[in-house]
Each structure stands twice: as structure tokens, then as C-alpha cells.
Design a protein around this nucleic acid. Sequence first.
RNA 1: GGUCUCGUGGCCGAGUGGCUAGGCAGCGGUCUGCAAAACCGCGUACAGCGGUUCGAAUCCGCUCGAGACCUCCA
Length: 488
Amino acid sequence: MENKLKLFNSLSRKKEDFVPLTEGYVGMYVCGPTVYGDPHLGHARPGITFDIVFRYLQHIGFKVRYVRNITDVGHLENDADEGEDKIGKKARLEQLEPMEIVQYYTNRYHSFMNALNVLPPSIEPHASGHIIEQMEIIDKIVDNGYAYESEGSVYFDVEKYNEKHPYGLLSGRNIEEMQANTRELDGQSEKRKSYDFALWKKAAPEHIMRWKSKWSDGFPGWHLECSAMGAKYLGETFDIHGGGMDLLFPHHESEIAQSVAANGRMPVKYWMHNNMITINGQKMGKSLGNFITLEEFFSGKHKMLEQAYSPMTIRFFILQAHYRGTVDFSNQALQSAGKANERMVKAFGRLDDIKTTNDGEFDVAALRNSCYTAMNDDFNTPILIAHLFDAVKFINAVADGKATMSEEQKLALQNIRQDFIVDILGLNLGEDESAGESKTDDIMELLLDVRRKLKEEKNYSMSDYIRDELGAKGVTIKDTKDGTTWEF
RNA sequence: GGUCUCGUGGCCGAGUGGCUAGGCAGCGGUCUGCAAAACCGCGUACAGCGGUUCGAAUCCGCUCGAGACCUCCA
């Protein structure tokens, strides 16, 4: 392939050629969900974004190990020192074991990701299963002199770290600014500086999720699990780390600092961040309470939704925007995405029935090349989709007898369909729904036969009545030259 | 307040210094008993004001507006 994959590295804020650390292999870590609530549209974005990265890297021949974690150790609801832990709170409210909460929402997350046709990662480690690994990192950081203990908790010494390593590389901050811009809070006497962050936190008596350690009964700091699990499964330095833009600071910044403090080397070569989904121009998020869950989208049961939207509509909607831009939710945009997806899938579905003749005026090889160019340019799925619509026009024109297609062209288009629509974009072609409904088929055939006879007798009022009543029940009738077709 | 991002036609959304993005909606046409689908054609957008340039929506400056991060959030 003559053009190479480039991706935008948040660290350099530039597009860079992708060169893996080990030729032929890619290690990728993506921040997964904190499992204390139902997944919403915001969760779909990184799920789908990095699913595309995973799929495409594999398509172009890399062996990829994709690690996406489950956060289940009960991080605090508010800020560093106050507030209840999220999972523990939910457990108390619902009178369940914390791990029941974790299991329930993990299952939910899986089933919705599956519906969106997001492939499962290679490894899905739980933070709670890696407490020892996290303690080991704390030991290393303490040994290297970048952490201090205070009242049973251990804090990362940002100032000390900053003397030798720049803190704030990823987010473009520096320690002076942070000092100037952080309010001094009362009751933070445990920490030397407001920007220090916890590596280990002593649990308050009412805190349910806790583990024994040499420092105290407590729980690991919020940023540590990714450092620990990333290093464990992908090595001290790996290729790609992904997540939402809102994690850039402080989460990923702290991850870098921890890893460097522990191991003396940068943990990640390429940082990738997906942008947010907005609703009326504002970020959709838990803290703002303006999120819509995936279940609500699929069922249409939410006051802002005019109808239900299928998982593939959601997927197409997200793919129609570039992952680094915000994408604004609206019913109109979603309906538009649904129709566009349907048109594309239908056209490529017609492909197999096309009667080939001689070469048509369409350069399939050039199209294929354009598709790769789009994907190689930082996974530009909107451009890829735009190119695929060129093929849609061509296929429809041939199906209508207004253009011709050769056998080679047909085969090449079938390959594009498999590679780009099915394998890379992960869009279902929707062959599953109508299967196994032969009884309905029989009845419909009869009904359409009656209607055909009515039309022969020019009894259009009756034939239209059949069509309209079926339409009201969700069955669409289409009269074509070759007969009548129907679909739900 | 600090750091940063963005502002594209009715809507959503790409984009490179000069050449049609694409989708949805709309309008006109072909086809059709009508309708739907499909196909063809159309709208001539780039927040505002300056500057650089032969040429800028694309580079620079300013103004206005929107948003993100600085506390958990995908």
C-alpha cells in the first residue's frame, strides 16, 4: 500500500505516521467504563471510535492486542478528599453487594456494545483484580522519591516530579499556572499541594470497597489502574492509549507522571482522544444530567426522542462525524443518519442481484484506493462514507438499467462491501431480520396477488386501500417493473 | 480567572491556499394509474472586520459568539 496510516497524537498535537514499537504488532489501551450506571450515548462514542481503530489496524495486517478496562474499585463521587464512592453509594441505595452493581452494569455495558456491533477487546481487566499490581507501582514511586505518605494515604508529589520531568505535557499545563489557578481548600491538610493526587487513599469507616495494605485499609487512586494494567498486559511502553477528551486532564496526565515516576519512561507512544457528544451544543454527561441512555435510544422512550433509533443508526450517526470533532445530537440528525445508512446498505444489498454486462463508467479500483486514503488519514470515516456513496449511485444506476457493470466491477464492489462496510465500519447489512418468517411471506404473497388482480381490473381504490392499510401497520409496498416487493 | 478548541448552505457534517465533499430535507424532471424507491438537474455556504498572497472558507491579527478542561464524567 503506497499511502501510510497517519494518526493524530494528542501529545504532539499533530498527525504523525503510525510506526508501531514492534513491527507487525500493536498494543492499544482504552479507558473503559466505570460500572455504576447504565451506558449512555457518550459511552458509545469511544466504544465505536476505538472499535474502528481496532478493526482497521487488523485489516491492514497488524496483530493487535486491545485492552479495555472495567473500573470497579469505588472511586469517589466528588473531589479528592470528600464524597462517597460511586459504586458503594449505588450498592447502599439498592441494598446490593458492590460487586453485584459491578456485575450488573458490566453485563449491561457488554450487551449494548454488542448491539452496536462493537467487537470485544482482547483483554478486559478489572481494576479490582489488579490491586496488587497497583500497590507495586506505588512502592516503586515511593522508592523513587516521588510520593509521600500522609495519614494512611499516599500522594504523588507533583512538585518533586516536575523538577526532573515536565508535568502537564499532554494537557498543555504547567505547574505554576496550576498553582495560581487552584483555590486553596480547607481540610486538605493531608496533601502538601492541591495538585498532588492520591495513589492510595485511606478508606473512611463507611466506605464499603476497601483493601488491606501496608498504608491503611483503603483503595487505590483514580489514575493508577490504567498505569498498572496497561503495563501488565502491554508493557511499560506501548503504542496507543485512547479515551475520551475529558480524560486528558487530570487522568491521562497523571497516568504519564505515575508511569514515568515508576519506570522512568513514557508509557505511551500515541495518545488518541475522541471528542464529546453534545446535546443542544452542550456536552452530554452524567454531571450535567442531560444524557440519554442507549436503552432509551433503542426503545425511543425518552422525552427528547421522537422515535426509537436502531443500534446501526446510532453507529452510522457517530461514524458520519470525525472522532475528534464534537457531534451534536438531534432527532433530525439521527433520522438523517438512519435514512442514509439504510440507503447505503440497501444499495450494496442489491449488488448480488445485478446482471453484469460490459464495463461501466466507474473506476472501482480508484474508489478502493480513496477508501484507504480516507482511513489512513486519521481514521476519517466521514470521508470514507462519502466515497461509498459514489458506489451507491453507481450500483443503483445499474440496477435501474441506466448504466452497466462488468463482472470484475461487481466482484470488486463486493470486496469493498465486505472490507469497508462490514469489516471496517462494522455496519450490519441487515440480512437477519426477515429470515425465518415464511408464514408471513405466504400471507403477504396472497395479499399482493389479490392486489395485483384488483389492479388488473383497474380497481385502484381497493388496491390502494390494501397498500395504505399495510403501510399503517408498518409494511411498505413497492411496485417495480419486475413485480411488487414488500418490507417492514 | 487560566489553558485550549471551534464558528461552513434549511439541518448534520468533511475539507485542501486556486479544481464538485457527502448525507438528510427542499424544488424541478424521468419512471409510475397514483404512491414509494431509484435516477438526472438545481440551490452557489464558509461568523464579522482588517492583513499576507496573483489568488483564502483554508495563513496572520482583532472583534463577536459557542463550547471543553481546570472536581467525577466517555
